[in-house]
Design a protein around this nucleic acid. Structure first.
Lengths: 69, 69
DNA sequence: TCTTTTTGTCAATTATATCATACATTTTGT
DNA sequence: ACAAAATGTATGATATAATTGACAAAAAGA
């Protein structure tokens, strides 16, 4: 998987640390870190939760036009 | 969790069975069934895969305005 | 009506997302 | 320079997504 820079920058735009976002979404800091890094394939529920905290939609943060998988 | 009727109807609109969609996305029929029924909290990767097969976006199929979790 | 397909569901197993704890490095603030 | 915060990683444990196999009921086609 590839890094999620859209997530990283959206979080930065809200001036939130990984821990802030983790607390706001009810997961651990390591989970947010792994998602940004591209190590995890998060659940849709967590993605929606992250989107709502950051004021973005799923398409804005988690849609990748050129995916191979 | 609640049923995903948007997924169910989008699949029907493409005249695909649960098995058809399962084959197209590389998972089993039971997995598609569980997602439509709301038993599973699928991964974002699988959601994207489903969206691409059905010609929809994440927001169209997996965004729920009123979520409690 | 009969046959086939589709759906719903169950149990056991496997794969993996996430947690909890911990530590090193980098960045930020003073 | 120093202290504090933030990030990057690593490990073992746990929860659950997903698999495989199977069977019954419902829907669709002949």
């Amino acid at each position: 998987m590839s890094k999620n820079l859209k997530l990283k920058s959206s979080r930065a735009a809200k001036d939130m640390s990984q821990k802030d976002l983790a607390d706001a979404t009810g997961v651990t800091r390591q989970t947010i870190n792994a998602i940004e890094k591209g190590d995890y394939n998060p659940s849709i529920k967590l993605c929606v939760s992250i989107c709502k905290v950051l004021g973005k939609t799923l398409d804005q943060l988690f849609w990748e036009e050129d995916e191979d998988e």
